[in-house]
Amino acid sequence: MVQTTFLQPASWPEALEARAANPDAVPVAGGTDVLVEVNFGRLHPSGLLDLGRVRELRTWGREKGRVRVGAGVTYSELITQLRGDLPALATAARTVGSPPIRNRGTLGGNLGTASPAGDCHPVLLACGAEVEVASSRVSRTVPADEFFVGPKRNALGADELISGVWIPRATGPQSFSKVGTRNAMVIAVCSLALALHPDSGRVGTGIGSAGPVPLRAREAEAFLEGHLAERGAWESKRPLEEAVVDRFAELVSQAAAPIDDVRGSLRYRRHALRVLARRSLGWCWNDYREAAR
């Protein structure tokens, strides 16, 4: 039988040392992803590195225009404590599993698993978040859109752990929508996050569960940014033409790289993203216009 080592550092420095000394050990935060694999016999780790005792990971704080969310902050905490600062992230967290899952699962764990279906990822992409990672030697930040390098693979080095995520506070409307084939407790068939940044004139997008990694719809972002700037729409706050919304939706759909699997079809995912993009843009732009009144 595979002998598993259980490591339980009590502090962040200890955690990084343990990570360096046991690069094969699987880091575990809330366990809501890792244990699914272990329980089904798909993962036989030689070591498990429990990060649950590392208090440093459990905190969050505001710094200038950003929020630093510790990797160990749970989905429940995102919902109850960060709804105002990070509304789309809170919305995404609310769609994760069930209350007991949200009580255990963490933002850092979501990133560590790096599933293309991870619910927080599209929001991090849309918001322009940066993932803070560290080894016992050095700490660095990785832009969210460079963090996901393949299906369930991320940019984390063998001696690194995720310490937190830097997320710009919402300065404009945001949305997150997730399609599933039942009305709760479902892994995304596809999902879409949209964030409008009126202060910088930027538009952020994030697509989940419709590609090998969570994706940004860069062309859609550029198209809409260009259109809004060109027409002075940020200032005039006039309604968006149907054709603009359609074009944006089409570009979002085209940015996806979905497959057929047990949860949904390629064709449906592209279609649903088009619908979500259209609706999300409508809601966000409407919110932006309303907020000005």
């Binding site: 769609t95 949305s175 997730k178 009305n183 609706r279």
Partner: peptide, 16 residues
């Protein structure tokens, strides 16, 4: 949320 298809997935506010 549960008044619409999709529940807390927030996919419609009445559209469609």
């Amino acid at each position: 949320a549960f008044g619409y298809p999709g529940g807390t997935g927030n996919v419609t506010r009445g559209e469609g």
